[in-house]
């Protein structure tokens, strides 16, 4: 069983700061991390490997520093790492990204056939979730997005059983291998990596490919050139106007509020909960 996980390096949006003048990211404030959803994707691949054996590879597109997140993936338990890094890839939107990644996957496929690709549900910088399904189309394999459980993997019969999150619950899906999954955080808990993985990761050097290392690439579909979407303007969301401030002592305020809400009191469900 060969699983390839697509992993992306992203700025940590939890501590991100925006320069209010230029509306750009204050890079200094945002350390680069492994996209949290992708960490779960790697963990899931490693869990499958532990259950039925196989190899876990990770693939990333990004600047040379992205080696760091490939090492993070090795810490979690991945066996191999590939980085595609080239100026030609820069400025890609999701369409151009899925094209570049699918070309790299074709190349990895030459080394060892791929049974499954796993992506994160989305990357926290772009928040699109479009790259995964895009890759699936390009490789012509079925995608299953929003996966919350990989219940069973049957490599012999080339089948997987999956739970997919839906608006009000989940679906149980059977998919043929090879397929592509995108995973939610619920899919697993990240395990605290054992020391031997840490040491392996510290020593690990991934395979790095430039655009010329890939086969049959149409350069017009890469990077900025290959991206149909462009960012127009950036702006701070319009500030809504506040409503009424209640006045007086706290008792008066509470009373006024309850009066104001009195007409809505049929909304309150007193009977059920107030015995």
């Amino acid at each position: 069983m060969h699983i390839v996980v697509c992993v992306k390096q992203v700025p940590d949006t939890k501590i991100i700061k925006i320069n209010p003048k230029t509306n750009t990211l204050d890079r200094r404030s945002a350390p680069a991390i492994l996209n949290p959803f992708d960490a779960h994707a790697v963990q899931e691949a490693v869990k499958i490997k532990k259950r039925i054996g196989g190899t876990v590879s990770v693939l990333s597109m990004g600047p040379p520093q992205a080696v760091a997140i490939i090492k993070n993936s090795i810490e979690i338990g991945a066996d191999r790492g590939y980085l595609i890094s080239d100026r030609a890839f820069a400025g890609a939107d999701t369409l151009a990204t899925s094209y570049a990644l699918s070309k790299a996957l074709e190349k990895i496929q030459e080394e060892m056939p791929i049974d499954m690709v796993i992506c994160g549900k989305h990357a926290i910088d772009g928040d699109t979730g479009q790259v995964g399904p895009g890759i699936a189309r390009r490789l012509d394999i079925p995608p299953v997005t929003n996966v919350i459980e990989v219940t069973e993997v049957n490599h012999k019969e080339k089948k997987v059983l999956i739970k997919r999150k839906q608006i009000n619950g989940y679906e149980v899906i059977e998919a043929q291998l090879p397929c592509l999954l995108t995973v939610e955080k619920e899919v697993n808990e990240i395990e605290y990596a054992p020391m031997p993985n840490m040491i392996k990761a510290a020593r690990y050097e991934p395979t790095v490919w430039s655009v010329n290392d890939l086969n049959d690439v149409d350069k017009a579909q890469l990077g900025l050139k290959g991206s149909p979407t462009v960012v127009g303007k950036m702006f701070t969301p319009p500030k809504p106007e506040g409503g009424k401030r209640l006045e007086g002592t706290s008792d008066e305020q509470v009373r006024e509020l309850v009066t104001l809400l009195a007409e809505k009191k049929n909304l309150f469900n007193f009977d059920v909960n107030n015995s």
């Binding site: 605290y192 990596a193 054992p194 020391m195 031997p196 840490m198």
Partner: peptide, 9 residues
């Protein structure tokens, strides 16, 4: 001894 599994070095 570190706090990781298999963590003695």
């Amino acid at each position: 001894r570190t706090d990781r599994p298999d963590g003695d070095l």
